[in-house]
């Protein structure tokens, strides 16, 4: 009974049960592409960041409370949301003058991610 309860609990929190939209972000020449991502309000989304540069970069956003190092020529995953409508800025902490972008949260459904 206890095992069943734990399994159900894990399944409930597991992201695989819920349809989480994926959004892709690229870092190239210390710039984010796209620099603005639009996501729906009130939903958790998966942000996959691909670093195409030869140097590491740190995705950092105070408003999103996220901080993650993305190694050179690799990718990293961050979950963000559910968020209220608004604009949430993020920077590449190692190159803050060039690597800047924002997540725009809108009320209507923004679609199932920017890539399939």
């Amino acid at each position: 009974m206890f095992r069943l309860f734990i399994s159900l609990l894990l399944a409930f929190f597991s992201s695989s049960l819920w349809a989480i939209s994926e959004y892709h972000l690229e870092i190239k020449d210390h710039l984010f592409f796209p620099s603005r991502i639009t996501i729906p309000a009130g939903q958790k989304v998966k942000l996959i960041i691909h670093n195409l540069d030869e140097t590491p970069e740190e995705f950092e956003s105070f408003s999103l409370n996220r901080e993650k190092v993305i190694f050179a020529q690799s990718q990293a995953v961050i979950f963000i949301g559910p968020l209220k409508p608004g604009e949430y800025e993020f920077v590449g902490e190692y190159n803050p003058n060039s690597a800047r972008g924002s997540v725009v949260v809108i009320l209507e459904k923004a679609g199932d991610g920017n890539v399939d």
Binding site: F62, N65, E67, K68, I80, G81
Partner: peptide
């Protein structure tokens, strides 16, 4: 704890207060 939230190991819970107007995190 934010580290666990950002990789979806801990559920996001609601914000208790917003004191950005007083002292901004940044």
């Amino acid at each position: 704890l934010n580290l666990l939230v950002q990789v979806d190991l801990l559920p996001t819970s609601s914000v208790v207060w917003d004191s950005q107007w007083l002292i901004d995190d940044e």
